[in-house]
Design a protein around this nucleic acid. Structure first.
Lengths: 184, 184
DNA sequence: TGGGACATGTAATTTGTTACATGATTTT
DNA sequence: AAAATCATGTAACAAATTACATGTCCCA
């Protein structure tokens, strides 16, 4: 997909500047881009060209002036069409760790266990981070009950995914132990 | 990461042609690239330049001649170094569906349920596919017990990830139902 | 006779990242 | 005095995809 609809979606919620959008992307676990300027400002120009959004420049004293983008009626229709009509895609799961592990056949069990521990530590860090963000409710406070629930579930999805990874690590450990005992 | 180490890893297992590598990537759920020629053949040239692999051209009658790549001693050392020394990365989870759902606030519950059903159907297809592949044991038959277990677990990881997605869908459904009942 | 498997490669394009550039205000 | 926040934008590069190009054999 393109980042365009993600941005259009944010603007369907409330008017925002490019800088705001950047921060929302950087803070969100499921808006998976890095939040770099190049993508955001280019996308905004494109949305503007297609009449999906409008903008208003606000000059500020003692601060750089900003462009506040709002979604148009046409933009809302396009967004709704995209949400409903686009065929849903299964997640793309890029797990470098699995590739590392896949060629670890020549390694000793001890080394593999070390890798698993490193992985576990990293995953736990992320879970803690996302749980904290979910608790802060930054971008879904004061929203209608219905939307509130959905947003909560988006965080929940990411947390569950990483917790699932922890379960898998345990499974691998148990299996390694077993084959170790049998061989010993 | 670069695809280079993934390819080097495959070659640490057995000599392969570019075409072989392409097919392995396309069939594997955790080697997440598309398996396009551009990346593979370029990567092989680079590995060759760095003395990590060597190749041997085999002319065939009634078939295009092929280049069979093998890993060098130096390549094996580099691969092992990469596996052990590279800091493990948490998975990159790109779930377009979550972005679609995140702006579904203005949709009716019925529409959201339709989206969930579509998502569920797609996910189930993938699970079935991966389970089939795991059962076929195509790229890990006849391998030492130790390696066999690891390969099995790599498939297991992907299957668990998608099954986790199904669990999440149920959770969302229950929640939607609940808020629907409360509002009605 | 048309498509698929085998086999290697290139071209064009899209997508995404890091780094550069500017400049004022506020915080440490 | 240095670093972070606010604010917009561009340049250079890296990574990845789709499509193009060529050619044989085998199967339906």
């Amino acid at each position: 997909m393109t980042i365009d609809y993600a941005i259009l979606g944010m603007l369907s919620w409330q008017p925002l500047t490019g800088y705001d959008i950047k921060k929302i992307i950087q803070e969100s676990p499921f808006l998976y881009w890095s939040g770099n300027n190049n993508q955001i400002y280019k996308s905004l120009v494109q949305l503007l060209d297609n009449n999906l959004v409008i903008n208003e420049t606000k000059h500020q004293e003692g601060a750089p002036s900003k462009k506040i983008y709002s979604i148009t009626e046409f933009g809302i229709k396009e967004l709704e069409k995209w949400i409903v009509d686009t065929n849903v895609e299964v997640p793309e799961l890029k797990k470098q760790f699995l590739i590392q592990l896949s060629w670890s056949g020549r390694l000793e069990v001890k080394e593999i266990e070390k890798l698993l521990l490193k992985y576990e530590t990293e995953i736990e860090k992320y879970i803690a981070m996302y749980k904290e963000e979910q608790k802060r409710e930054k971008h879904f406070k004061n929203r209608p009950k219905h939307e509130y629930f959905i947003w909560k579930m988006l965080y929940e999805n990411m947390i569950m995914s990483y917790e699932n990874e922890l379960k898998w690590i345990e499974k691998v450990r148990d299996g390694l132990l077993e084959s170790h005992v049998k061989e010993g």
